[in-house]
Amino acid sequence: MPQSGEKRMRLRYDGVCRLCGASLPAGVEAVYERATKTVRCLECAPAGAPNAPEPSDSTAESKAEPPTSAPDVAGASARREYERRKAKREKRIRAKHPKLGGLILAMSDDPQSTKAWNTGAIGEEQLGRRLDELASDSVRVLHDRRIPGTRANIDHIAITPTGIYVIDAKRYVNQRPALRIEGGILRPRVATLMVGGRDRTKLVDGVLSQVEIVRDIVGDAVPVTGVLCFIDADWPLLGGAFTIRGMEVLWPKKLYPLLVASGDLPDSVDEAGVRLSAALPQA
C-alpha cells in the first residue's frame, strides 16, 4: 500500500534517489515524497514500509510538483553522458542492422570517446563516496557543480576550516603523474605536468580556471586551493605528490588529511557553502 504523502509517478524532471543516491532521469518511474519534495527509486522503501507505493492515475502525475533540493551525487553528469552516448550508439546500430544489431553490440566495444565518460564517472564516484564520509559540521562537500553559462562542471568542492579546495578527479589507471621542470637560469622556468609520459598540463589550466571562478564567488577572505586528484594511478612508494603553479597534485589518501586539518576559519564553512551552492547549480 502507498504511504501517506507519497505517489508513484513518471518523473518529468531529472532527480536523484534520496536514499541510495542513484540518478533518476526524466521519464522513469519513481516515488515522489511530498513532505520533502524529493524522490526515491522503486528499489528503495522507507523504514517500516512493506511494499512500494502503487501507481497513481496519469492526471495526478502531470500535476505533481518537480522534486527539489536533491542531494549532490558525485559523477552524476558524467554518468548521464556515458549512458546517453551508449544508448544512442545502440539505437543507431539496431536501426541499421535489425537482425544482427544485438550480435554486433555484443562483439564490439563502445568507442573510446564514450568509454572515457564511464572512466571519468567511476573516478568521481569513488572519490565522492570517501569525501562524503569526511563531511561534518566543519567540512562541507559539494559535488558535480555546473559553471553557469558553460557546459563545464566542477567535480568536487570541499569547504574546510583551512580554506576551500577545488578538486578535479582524474582516473588514469596505472599511469604515473610527474612534474617536469625545464629552464630556470638562462631561460624562463617552465613546469609541465606529465602523465604516463604525455604532457597533460591542460589539466592544470582547467583546475586553475575553476579556482578563479570559486574565488570570485567567495571573495578574498577565504583561501582557495586547486587539487588534481589522480585515482588508480601508478604512484611511487615514496614521495610522488607535488605542487605545480600553486596547485596540489596527489592521490586520495594524500588529500584527506588536508581536508580534516584544523584551521582558523570555522565560521566560513556554512557561509561559503551557501554562496557556492547558490552560484553553482547541480550539473
Rank of each mutant, 00 (worst) to 15 (best):
D199N: 15
S62Y: 07
V224F: 05
E182Y: 08
P188L: 07
L103K: 13
N51C: 04
D270R: 02
R12T: 05
V139L: 14
R171Q: 11
E125N: 02
I147R: 01
D109M: 02
K88P: 01
K115V: 06
Q210A: 15
R130T: 10
A45K: 13
A178M: 14
L100W: 09
A121M: 04
N51P: 00
I93Q: 00
R12N: 03
T38S: 10
M247Y: 11
T160A: 01
A241N: 04
L203K: 13
I122Q: 05
G75Y: 04
L142Y: 00
V166I: 11
G27H: 09
V214E: 02
A52C: 13
S268T: 09
E54C: 08
P177C: 12
G128R: 02
P236Y: 01
S138W: 03
E81F: 05
K202P: 02
P98K: 06
R189I: 12
A70C: 05
K202Y: 13
R85W: 02
P55W: 12
P161R: 13
V141P: 00
A178D: 13
V173L: 12
V73Y: 03
P53M: 02
G183K: 03
T119H: 03
L259T: 02
L131M: 07
D72M: 03
G196D: 09
Y82F: 15
A272N: 11
G219M: 04
P53E: 15
R215Q: 14
I185E: 12
G102R: 04
P46A: 10
R176Y: 00
V39P: 06
R198Y: 11
R34A: 14
G184L: 03
R34Q: 11
N153Y: 03
V195L: 06
P50T: 06
L103Q: 06
L193H: 10
V224Y: 10
V269E: 03
P188D: 09
P266Q: 09
M9C: 15
G21L: 08
A135H: 09
A45N: 08
V16Q: 02
T243S: 11
R151Q: 10
R79P: 00
V222M: 00
D109W: 05
R176C: 00
A121G: 09
V73S: 09
G48N: 13
I213V: 15
R215K: 15
P236S: 00
Q3P: 05
A121W: 14
H143F: 04
S58T: 15
V31G: 08
S262P: 03
Y82I: 01
G206V: 01
S69I: 01
Y82R: 00
S23I: 04
T162N: 09
L103I: 14
Y82H: 08
G183Q: 07
D132V: 00
Q3G: 15
R12Q: 10
T192I: 15
T225L: 10
G123E: 07
R198N: 14
A78M: 10
P236C: 02
Y32G: 08
K37M: 11
P111H: 02
G48A: 13
A191S: 13
I104V: 13
V260S: 12
R92T: 14
R84A: 13
V211K: 01
S138M: 04
M194K: 09
P111G: 05
R215E: 08
E90K: 07
A49G: 06
G48D: 14
V173I: 13
C229M: 03
P50F: 03
L193E: 09
G246W: 13
C17Q: 07
P223E: 10
T192A: 12
A178C: 08
P66Q: 05
G101S: 01
P177S: 07
K115R: 15
P161Q: 05
G226L: 10
G123S: 07
